[in-house]
């Protein structure tokens, strides 16, 4: 079976304000992970982290990309955007803190749980931001032999 193991990856363009397409990347990642036989708890963590990351770009940035890569060792998600950047990362990590505008709140987002949610679901999490340029987010969720039961 080990010989069948391979890297599966995908890349999505994200547009600021494009709520209608939100979730496409996370939904595909979820389907991929389920087809690989990754346990449900891990699938959920990865898709939640990816979904929140997608929403962050759609809410705050002009545009961005989400790229994911699944190997027997880990699920890797990186999201890069051209956006306003984050002035105070510690503050942004606080539950309930949000700079989202009111109209976003009225759509059910921007309650300040996005980044904390991503961190909580990731095994490793890295956030880099330059104000006025953009933000890069790297999420890793580790897999073990047992929970990567590739049966293709």
């Amino acid at each position: 079976m080990a010989s069948n193991r391979r890297t599966i990856e995908g890349c999505f363009q994200l547009m600021g304000g494009a709520f209608a397409g939100a979730g496409a990347a996370s939904s595909e990642l979820k389907t991929v992970l389920m087809s690989l036989g990754v346990p449900q708890g891990i699938v959920r963590r990865a898709s939640i982290a990816a979904f929140e990351a997608e929403m962050n770009v759609i809410i705050h940035a002009v545009a961005g990309t989400l790229h994911y890569e699944v190997t027997p060792a880990k699920i890797h998600i990186d999201v890069t955007d051209m956006g306003p950047g984050i002035e105070d990362i510690d503050l942004a990590m606080q539950e309930g803190y949000s700079t989202a505008p009111d109209w976003v709140r009225e759509m059910g987002w921007g309650a300040g749980m996005g980044l904390p949610n991503i961190k909580r679901n990731a095994d490793a999490f890295k956030l880099d931001s330059v104000v006025g340029e953009g933000t890069t987010l790297e999420i890793n969720i580790f897999l073990t032999e047992e929970n990567y039961a590739d049966n293709t």
Partner: peptide, 11 residues
């Protein structure tokens, strides 16, 4: 809104 459905799927 449609994102509610998307969210339900992910969760």
């Amino acid at each position: 809104q449609s994102q509610v459905i998307m969210t339900a799927e992910i969760a």
